[in-house]
Design a protein around this nucleic acid. Structure first.
Length: 564
DNA sequence: GCCGTTTTCGGCCCGACTGTTTTCAGTCG
């Protein structure tokens, strides 16, 4: 609606109010349907940016699936505008002009009009703009996929190394959604400060000359933007070292967070931008990122929390969570060995985990029904457990735990008999089949499994795989409440393809006192070490503290908690 | 349209790059 209001020529501040509300909805840790169910309009209006007008419209959308004001607005404008607005480089002014002057009703029309030279006659439209629009149409056709964190992070680290190796570079790092450890990122953002002002052009030049670039989208004095042949997009910003901290804050975002911080600044008579912190035109800070927060009277807010989803209020009330760190994990409760579909043997897994500083490792191979992953029969499981005993006698100050990732069958029962489950240290229960049940059936299935006396942890609760499989239809809130009622834990699966649960449900679990385990679900030795940071990063986005995470407990307490 | 240790009215974050201009509009972040 904000975009359509912009086309219509509404006043800027009304448009901004809609945009702000849209971001507040998108970034809210819980789906608004649940909030509306519990507290109605007044609960919606408690969300900052949503007032009476927009609250009613959202409520209407939730209860009826429609919004009369939106439909009215759409009817007032030429048809095809919403589609045109999806095209990169094509905004509200151009869309309206194309629709009004040439009767263009969509992307196909637009392409024809460009080819026949029809748009060249319009004001402020020339050859360059034609080219720009054609590039936008090509991108629109491709569809823009976000990159999973697991691919983006190593790529960004390589690029930071390349930027740091330039002779004129003083400081360089990646920022943006990647620094906030978002589970997928739209592009890669880099920040560099030059050793001296004269070094900036060379740094930008080097950036747009990196190998594998398909297109230089922009290349100015302080900023450049490129697209690589493999689809990655990257932005570089070069600022004076004096402004590096302010720029890092700005470039890390999120946009909502930045706006909130800048508004706080305005109230204190400050202007905050990527160039620093200013009072009456005079610079009062910006070299270090901490200075931005200090200027508005807040403690440092970790990047993973900067979503404009309550972190500013928490910081102001001195109630920011003390987030879990990689160091605080004392073990991993979900890895696979060569007994099922993993590649590493038990002893090498144990030694690798011990080397990481872990006290324990649960080797949770698949249960017998999951044939595709070479799930273990009861006999094989017993044999594996005897080898675990043998390995444990070899190592001191470390313990392999007997575990299984047991399938939740379609009726909600588990894949091993109770007497087998009773002999295990850790029982993870997971869905691996029939992801397509309807929400009621899937929710029944999972909550029944959580009620099982031997179940301890629900593995990868939604089953999603980025780019491959949507989360299964399930009432997550009901699952989280079931975990609370039965005293069970939820897994945060740290495989970068999964990152399941994500930050919203994690916050909800924390709110309801449901413990989480951060697991790698590693199938190789490399994954055991490599996936920890993805799991911890996502946990931090979910506001989790060490006390919310079971595998920060020492072994004795962990087992006591799992078996209570 | 939203919001309030400046305010229930009068404000609303801040800036870069491109293209078509000769002072700025449009798009994007």
């Amino acid at each position: 609606m904000a975009e359509l209001l912009e086309v219509k020529g509404e006043i800027r501040f009304k448009i901004q109010a809609y945009q702000k509300a849209a971001r507040a909805v998108a970034e809210h840790p819980r789906p608004l349907t649940g909030i509306h169910e519990e507290g109605g309009l007044s609960a919606l209006m408690e969300i900052s940016g949503i007032g009476e007008g927009l609250g009613k419209k959202i409520g209407e959308l939730i209860t009826t699936g429609r919004c009369a004001a939106y439909e009215k607005l759409k009817a007032e404008l030429p048809p095809g505008i919403p589609e045109l607005l999806e095209v990169p480089n094509l905004g509200p002014r151009t869309a309206l002009s194309l629709a009004k002057n040439l009767g263009i009703k969509g992307v196909t029309d637009l392409e024809k009009a460009i080819k026949t030279g029809a748009i060249r006659g319009l004001p402020r439209m020339g050859v360059k703009l034609e080219e720009k629009l054609l590039r936008g149409i090509a991108l629109w056709r491709q569809g823009r996929e976000r990159m999973p964190l697991g691919l983006a992070l190593p790529r960004a680290q390589e690029m930071v190394a390349a930027l740091l190796s330039l002779p004129g570079t003083k400081r360089a790092e990646y920022a943006g959604s990647l620094r906030r450890m978002c589970e997928t990122v739209g592009d890669l953002d880099f920040l560099v400060s030059p050793k001296s002002a004269g070094d900036a052009p060379g740094i930008l030049k080097a950036f747009v000359s990196l190998p594998g670039i398909a297109e230089i989208v922009a290349h100015g004095d302080t900023k450049a933007s490129v697209r690589f042949k493999d689809g990655f997009e990257a932005d570089l910003r070069v600022v004076d070292d004096d402004a590096y901290g302010a720029a890092l804050h700005y470039f890390t975002g999120s946009k909502t967070h930045n706006i909130l911080i800048r508004e706080l600044g305005v109230r204190k008579g400050l202007k905050i931008s990527e160039y620093g912190i200013f009072r009456r035109g005079k610079r009062v800070g910006g070299r270090k990122e901490e200075e931005v927060f200090r200027a508005v009277g807040l403690p440092f807010i970790p990047p993973e929390l900067r979503e404009g989803a309550g972190e500013i209020e928490a910081a102001a009330g001195n109630s920011l969570p003390r987030l879990v760190t990689e160091d605080s994990l004392k073990g991993d409760l979900h890895v696979h060995s060569s007994y099922s579909d993993g590649t590493a043997g038990l002893e090498e897994l144990a030694r690798a985990a011990k080397k990481m500083g872990y006290e324990y490792l649960a080797v949770s191979d698949h249960g017998r029904s999951l044939k595709i992953a070479r799930g273990l029969s009861v006999t094989e499981l017993r044999k594996k457990n005897r080898e675990i005993d043998r390995v444990n006698r070899l190592l001191s100050g470390f313990r392999l735990l007997k575990a299984a990732e047991v399938d939740i069958l379609e009726d909600g029962s588990l894949d091993y008999p109770d007497d087998v489950l009773a002999g295990l240290d850790v029982v993870i229960v997971s869905v691996h089949t029939r992801f397509n049940l309807d929400s009621a059936a899937q929710t029944r299935r999972i909550t029944k499994a959580l009620a099982h006396r031997h179940a301890m942890i629900l593995g990868h609760p939604t089953g999603r795989l980025f780019g491959q499989r949507e989360p299964c239809a399930v009432d997550l809130d009901a699952v989280i409440r079931a975990a609370r009622d039965h005293g069970k834990a939820l897994e945060l699966n740290g495989q970068p393809d999964r990152l399941d649960l994500s930050s919203g449900p994690l916050r909800r679990a924390r709110e309801l006192g449901v413990p989480v385990t951060i697991n790698s679900d590693a199938h190789t030795l490399e994954q055991l070490a490599g996936y920890r940071r993805f799991g911890v990063g996502t946990a931090r986005r979910g506001w989790l503290e060490p006390r919310d995470v079971l595998n920060t407990l020492p072994l004795g307490q962990l087992l006591k908690r799992l078996h209570r």
